[in-house]
Simulated scan of single mutants.
Amino acid sequence: MSMAYVRDRDAPLRAPPVGTAGALGWLRENLFLSLGNSLLTLLLAVAIGYIAWGVLDWAVLRAVWTGADRAACAINNAGACWPFVWEKFPQWIFGFYPISERWRPVTAFLIGAAALVPMLMPGLGAKKWNALFLLVVYPVIAFELLAGGLFGLPEVETTSWGGLTVTLVVAVTGIVFSLPLGILLALGRQSSLPIIRSASVAFIEIWRGVPLVTVLFMASVMLPLFLPNGVSLDKLMRAIVGLSLFASAYMAEAVRGGLQAVTKGQTEAGLALGLSRWQTTRKIVLPQALRISIPNIVGIFIGLFKDTTLVLVVSIYDFLGIINAGLQDAKWAAPQTANTGYFVAALVYFAFCFAMSRYALFTERRLEPAGRR
């Protein structure tokens, strides 16, 4: 029999139809799949373009870039007043920190960034030692650099701190303390011991039922009453304690949701392998629960970072507070200075919050294969 018409290899692959692959295919699949989607895409594009053009026109095209006082910005149809930002920006970063000592918060932030970057990079090892440095050693170094009093560093009272320095100190400290405390509260709420479970439930519900503004007022006024004689905390420390306890209650509920999402069979499998209940929770259940809870945990972190603006109610000048204080300067009393200051504040807060959300998304994608297994 002749084998002349029997194919001995696969037919060559043909290119996909035009409009189903590449950039054109993505646009068609995601933005122009139907008539309704196409109309909605066009309406949103027009709205986004209109807003973007308005911001560009105000912040760049009609903006004032040079000047020494309000006269430069107090002109008709003027846009953003950037000279106001150039003059006030150092104060927005450091608050009332002495100018000659501003190298200290800069050094503290650089050390923290140098330690945090390897911690966030999955490919680098020594995570335990890195975490130990960030949680134990670095807070001592940062506090000594900022507060001074030892090693020949002049003492700087926390009342002189302000601006982005205070925002980062309050936010980072609140995040570091609220996460482990929230995990303990979540585990306590699921404990089989009635006393621990009731105490955890009471703590969570009480703190979640009180507005943060009230918590800050109470921390500023009532906390000193519960301290031993001769022990006192300044206003910044009181605000950090109140904010950390407040955030830990919400963190506990986020972690508890992750714990409930882990099937009971995971615990039974760990116990069947001879692990104790604590080992099963620590090595099997809790890692899965934290992976599931990443979106909620990051949402709480972002909310906590933005809630630092409320410390202004107890006379602590965070980043937004120091901007408001700068607006009282008669030298820059122009119509556009307030809008420009708030615009810069929005950009700074967006940058930090967007970075946290993007890294959380990266972590979710990296851990997704482990979840499928």
Rank of each mutant, 00 (worst) to 15 (best):
S2R: 07
Y5S: 10
R7M: 06
D8Q: 14
R9H: 15
A11C: 07
A11K: 09
P16V: 03
P17C: 03
A21E: 00
A23V: 10
W26S: 12
W26M: 12
L33N: 14
S38L: 11
L39P: 08
L40H: 10
G49V: 09
I51H: 02
W53Q: 05
W58P: 03
R62K: 13
T66Y: 09
A68W: 14
A68C: 09
R70I: 09
A71E: 12
A71S: 14
A74D: 08
G79E: 05
K88A: 05
K88L: 05
P90D: 01
F94S: 13
Y97I: 06
S100A: 15
R102N: 12
W103I: 09
W103K: 04
P105S: 07
P105V: 13
T107R: 06
L110W: 12
A114F: 13
A115N: 00
M119F: 13
M119Q: 00
M121P: 00
G123C: 02
G123E: 12
A126L: 15
W129M: 04
F133L: 04
F133V: 04
V136S: 14
L145E: 09
L145R: 11
G148V: 12
F151C: 13
W161Y: 08
L164H: 04
V169Y: 14
V170R: 03
I175C: 11
G182P: 05
I183C: 01
L185W: 02
A186L: 11
G188H: 04
Q190N: 09
S191L: 03
S191Y: 05
S191V: 09
P194S: 01
I196F: 03
E205Q: 00
I206M: 09
P211H: 10
V213T: 10
V221E: 11
L223R: 11
L225K: 15
L225F: 08
P228H: 00
G230N: 02
D234K: 06
M237P: 01
M237K: 10
R238E: 06
A239T: 10
A239K: 07
S244Q: 04
A252F: 08
A254Y: 07
R256S: 00
L259Q: 07
L259E: 03
T263K: 14
K264C: 04
G265K: 02
G265I: 02
L273V: 04
L273E: 03
G274Q: 09
R277L: 11
R277N: 03
Q279K: 05
Q288M: 04
Q288N: 13
R291N: 15
R291I: 07
I294Q: 03
P295R: 12
G299V: 09
F301A: 04
F301Q: 03
L312H: 08
V313C: 10
V313M: 11
I316D: 01
I316Q: 01
D318E: 15
F319I: 13
I323H: 03
I323D: 01
G326E: 10
L327M: 13
L327V: 00
L327E: 02
A330G: 11
A330R: 13
A330W: 11
A333T: 05
A338V: 15
A338D: 06
F350D: 08
F352G: 01
M356L: 13
R358T: 04
R358M: 11
Y359P: 01
A360F: 00
L361C: 04
E364S: 13
R365G: 14
R365H: 15
R366Y: 00
R366Q: 00
R366M: 10
G371R: 15
G371A: 15
